[in-house]
């Protein structure tokens, strides 16, 4: 464990807790893309298949349970909670996220470190995580505005993956033979995808005005 990875995990934890807390507190999910939340639930479900078979550390197992629990809770709130579901804007959240799942699955069948069921799903979860934010960014473009909590959610998500990149650099230089191109490339792509959002988020924060994403 290194400071970058710990900072990344804490930022990631903060992003899901910020979102869960917002939805639980104000009983509204306005501006949040259910598609992105469903994709994240799939990401965690396919990445943590080894949660009961391979024990790495209490921290690792605890965090996996928190991420699984929070992502599925958010999906449950948005789909089934009688009050929250009313604020879900399904007419705007129309990104066909299955168009992301199939290519990621096919790509994971081709590019992976080992062609086993768990390894392919683990690789699939990395590719899917890289693009999972797309429905949320599309929804923001459509609704043109972003309330602070959703902005913080996306900002924290982007920051978590940026911290992980520093973690991979650190591990590359400190651990011999630590080379894993797949998570590195997927993680870099994911961080770049947040790039333009960061640009607009920073400028709106600096000029202290509501975030206006370009159409």
């Amino acid at each position: 464990m290194n400071i970058f990875r710990f900072a990344g995990d804490m930022t990631h934890l903060a992003s899901v807790l910020v979102l869960l807390l917002k939805i639980h507190t104000i009983k509204s999910c306005a501006g949040v893309s259910l598609k992105t939340q469903e994709l994240y639930a799939i990401v965690f479900a396919t990445r943590y298949l080894d949660i009961f078979t391979d024990f790495i550390s209490l921290y690792n197992t605890f965090m996996k349970l928190v991420f699984l629990g929070s992502s599925f809770s958010i999906v449950w709130y948005m789909r089934s909670h009688k009050i929250v579901r009313r604020s879900y804007d399904k007419d705007q959240d129309t990104f066909r996220h299955y168009f992301l799942i199939v290519p990621c699955l096919l790509l994971a069948m081709i590019i992976n470190e080992k062609f086993t069921f768990r390894e392919v799903l683990w690789t699939f979860s990395l590719f899917l995580e890289a693009v999972a934010i797309l429905p949320q960014l599309v929804l923001l473009q459509r609704t043109r505005n972003i309330d602070n909590l959703t902005g913080q959610y996306i900002f924290l998500l982007g920051a978590y993956r940026a911290f992980y990149i520093f973690n991979w650099i650190y591990r590359y230089f400190t651990e011999p033979h630590y080379v894993h191109w797949i998570p590195w490339i997927a993680g870099l792509l994911q961080t770049l995808l947040y790039g333009d959002f960061f640009y607009y988020y920073f400028h709106s924060w600096k000029n202290n005005k509501k975030l206006q994403l370009p159409a």
Binding site: H12, D54, E113, W122, Y164, H180, P183
Partner: peptide
């Protein structure tokens, strides 16, 4: 078998 190092991350 030693846990694959890339799978020890979240």
């Amino acid at each position: 078998s030693p846990k694959q190092s890339s799978h020890d991350e979240l």
